[in-house]
Amino acid sequence: MGTEKKRVIYNARNTENDDEEPSKCFQISPDVEMKEIPITGEEYLLKVIKERQQCAVVTVCDKDVSQFAKNQSRFYKEPAGTKTAPDKLKPTIEWQKIQVSDFSEVRSDLTKILVMLMKTGKMEAKAKPIKIGDDTLEGWKLFFESNDPTLSCALGLKPDKLVRGLEMLVEILEEVEPGQTVDHKTGQWIYAFLARAWQPLLSDTISIMRNLARTCAEIR
């Protein structure tokens, strides 16, 4: 930056006293004018600083969270007529713990593999992109029937395809006739999509997963 002291990118602070006011990393010349559309770097920084000054330092929730803090379901109500599973079909606690443990292990392994592939630059070579010729229910049915939910497919799931695929899986489940069950391959794809779900989950994804769980419960 030469000898221009008015433009300082980094100014080391004394860390011996953590209570002191931190020094500014950026200093902007007083001659810089505020513009709606910044052109230079200093104009952009000035605009960011001015916008930041209009925001509260701490954002406080103005809603009473005491009613839904435990389960985060205050704003959701099960539709009328929803039936609980018969006692004889309810899985045991031991079985549930085993499934949760196995599922968590799969998700953890996927995350480790993703991180390793991104670090080594081998993501494109190992991940199989999900390509749907016809983005309709029939097109997704053909994809699910023609492909296995392999590791490479799971790694290749992009966020948009993951959400869209979950929507299609819900529609496929809704076509299951009374007295019939979910076929094995569809079940495998459901597992793969859930294991690969990106976190934190968006509200739309959570809504789709609710529909998925409810539809599975109805089939059961």
Rank of each mutant, 00 (worst) to 15 (best):
M1Q: 08
R7C: 09
I9T: 09
N11Q: 13
N11D: 12
D18F: 11
D31E: 15
E36N: 08
I39P: 00
G41I: 07
E43Y: 01
L45I: 07
L46C: 08
V48E: 12
E51Y: 02
R52E: 14
Q53C: 12
Q53F: 08
Q54F: 03
V57E: 13
V58M: 11
S66M: 10
K70G: 02
S73W: 06
F75R: 05
E78C: 05
P79R: 05
A85W: 04
P86K: 09
D87I: 08
W95G: 01
F103K: 10
S104W: 00
R107Y: 01
S108A: 13
S108K: 15
L114R: 15
A125H: 02
A125L: 08
A127F: 00
K128F: 04
K131V: 15
K131E: 14
G133H: 07
G133D: 09
D135C: 04
D135H: 14
L142T: 12
L142D: 11
N147H: 15
D148I: 11
T150D: 03
C153R: 14
G156A: 05
G156P: 02
L162E: 05
V163I: 14
R164W: 11
G165N: 01
M168P: 00
L169H: 01
I172L: 11
L173V: 03
E174Y: 06
E177N: 06
Q180N: 14
Q180T: 04
P200C: 08
L202H: 10
I206R: 08
R210A: 02
R214L: 13
R214H: 12
